[in-house]
Simulated assay, not measured.
Amino acid sequence: MTHVVTEQCIRCKYTDCVDVCPVDCFREGPNMLVIDPDECIDCAVCIPECPVNAIYAEEDVPADQVAFTALNAELARAAGWKSITKRKPALDDAEEWKDKPGKLSELVR
């Protein structure tokens, strides 16, 4: 099993989760984080740290977010999506975007 970052992270990119990850499984893109499924040890310490509730255990991903399981795996291996191990400020307009649904079209790869 692994954990999955879902749509809620897009255009927010809060990084509270990376500070607690014991295996550095998070990868950073321009406007979202993802979890590398090959690195995640399923410890779940990241879940309560996410201020927008974007992280789920794979078996708990909401039905409308299941595509993010494969998307996390794909983007974790994408060129430019590097490991992130230290907290950074959220995106400047994160507060505006944190509660908006339907953000997949906003994802910058």
Rank of each mutant, 00 (worst) to 15 (best):
D24N: 13
E7N: 11
D24H: 11
N31R: 14
C21S: 10
C17S: 02
V34K: 01
K13P: 03
V18C: 08
K13L: 04
Q8Y: 12
F26K: 07
F26M: 06
C12N: 00
I35T: 03
T15K: 11
D24C: 08
Q8L: 03
Q8N: 09
M32P: 05
V23F: 12
C21H: 03
D19R: 12
R27E: 10
P30S: 14
C12D: 02
C12Q: 03
P22G: 03
C12T: 02
I10Y: 15
C25M: 14
Y14H: 04
C25P: 00
P22T: 02
R27C: 10
K13S: 10
F26I: 07
P30E: 15
V20P: 00
E7T: 05
V20K: 01
D19Q: 10
T15F: 00
I35F: 05
C9R: 03
C9A: 07
M32A: 15
V23P: 07
C9G: 02
N31I: 04
T15R: 12
N31E: 11
E28W: 01
V20D: 08
N31F: 06
R27L: 06
K13I: 01
V34E: 10
F26S: 00
T15D: 06
C21P: 06
R27F: 07
V20I: 01
Q8M: 07
I35N: 10
V20T: 05
Y14E: 07
Y14C: 03
D36N: 15
D24R: 14
C17I: 00
P30H: 12
M32W: 12
P22H: 02
Y14R: 04
G29L: 13
K13T: 10
Q8K: 08
C9P: 01
P22E: 04
E28G: 08
M32G: 01
L33F: 07
D36K: 14
R11M: 15
E7C: 07
C9Q: 02
C17V: 02
N31C: 11
V18D: 10
V23I: 13
D19G: 15
E7H: 12
Q8I: 02
L33P: 04
F26P: 00
V18H: 06
D24F: 02
V20M: 02
E7K: 12
N31P: 13
F26C: 05
V18Q: 04
P30K: 12
C21W: 05
Q8S: 05
Q8D: 09
G29F: 14
C21A: 09
F26R: 09
E7W: 15
G29C: 14
V18T: 06
D16L: 03
E28N: 09
D16N: 14
